[in-house]
């Protein structure tokens, strides 16, 4: 059965981001997590590994991302590879894909690579397709269902497109990006966490890889998004509801 690589990213938990002065973002109280979409990738990898296959969890990040390894390993992966280096702390999609591609090519036997549809922080939705290109393998993005053929060697996937679903096939090796609805990720138990601590982790340093290319995307500014509106509150008594509906009418949204 297939050897599967599940890629994940250790990201800021956006629930802890506060709005600072003058529209700045305050990261001082943030916690970190495995990007939500990547939990689906890890779960899907564990699910379709079958008998005899091996799941490798792979990530790139700064040294602090090491905290995510045990979490990833408690979600069904057999082993983890960590491109961990201060130089990898804030890579753009092209750099991340290049680092992951180099590691997969040289260190990890694989048939199937699974990525989340995007990361929970920048949500650029690029690393998966770029990684497939860097490796020169087929890419099937935004899938909601994945089936490994019983005889092995290929997959069938349901890809979400604008007008519905395309059911597609491709032979190994292949990369897919998964939508959150593909599965419900497990919540690791105490036993999973204990076992995860005994699983092997290979850390790869910058020096072991070819020189990192220039970032192709630069962030000029990152400010708090404005979602606030001036909420007018109404009560629940019949006359309040009448005023509420009158307000809708006055704003021209009901005929």
């Amino acid at each position: 059965m297939p050897n599967v690589v599940a890629c994940f990213k250790w990201v800021v938990d956006e629930a802890y981001i506060r709005k600072g002065a003058a529209g700045a973002l305050d990261f001082s109280a943030v916690d970190y997590k495995i990007s939500e979409y990547d939990r689906n990738a890890l779960e899907e990898a564990a699910r379709c590994r079958g008998e005899g296959g091996k799941v490798t969890a792979l990530t790139a990040g700064g040294p602090e991302a090491a905290k995510g390894l045990k979490d990833a390993l408690s979600r069904g992966a057999d082993t983890a590879v960590f491109a961990g280096d201060p130089a990898f702390a804030d890579l753009d999609s092209s750099q991340t894909a290049a680092v992951l591609a180099e590691i997969i090519r040289t260190l990890i036997p694989y048939d199937l690579i699974i990525c989340g549809e995007g990361s929970g922080d920048k949500y650029a939705q690029q690393v998966g397709p770029r990684l497939a290109e860097n490796l020169g393998i087929p890419c099937i993005s935004y899938i909601q269902k994945l089936t490994v053929a019983a005889e092995g060697g290929r997959i069938t996937a349901e890809r979400r497109v604008e007008e519905g679903v395309e059911v597609v096939e491709a032979s190994f090796p292949v990369l897919v990006t998964v939508l959150p609805e593909i599965n419900i990720p497990r919540i690791p138990g105490v036993k999973d966490t204990l076992m995860a601590g005994k699983k092997p982790v290979r850390t790869v340093k910058k020096e072991e890889l070819p020189p990192l290319g220039e970032a192709k995307l630069k962030t000029l500014a990152m400010t708090a998004a404005r979602l606030e509106r001036n909420c007018e509150l109404y009560g629940t008594a019949p006359e309040d509801i009448a005023r509420f509906v009158a307000a809708l009418q006055q704003k021209g949204v009901i005929g």
Binding site: E14, L25, Y123, K218, M222
Partner: peptide
């Protein structure tokens, strides 16, 4: 010197990111 400057959302929509492309 940036050909174009783009705005997009990040952090689940909590942040507005201004970006430029170097290639």
């Amino acid at each position: 010197g940036d050909a174009l400057v783009m705005e997009r959302l990040a952090y689940g929509g909590a942040a507005l990111q201004r970006v430029a492309i170097t290639g």
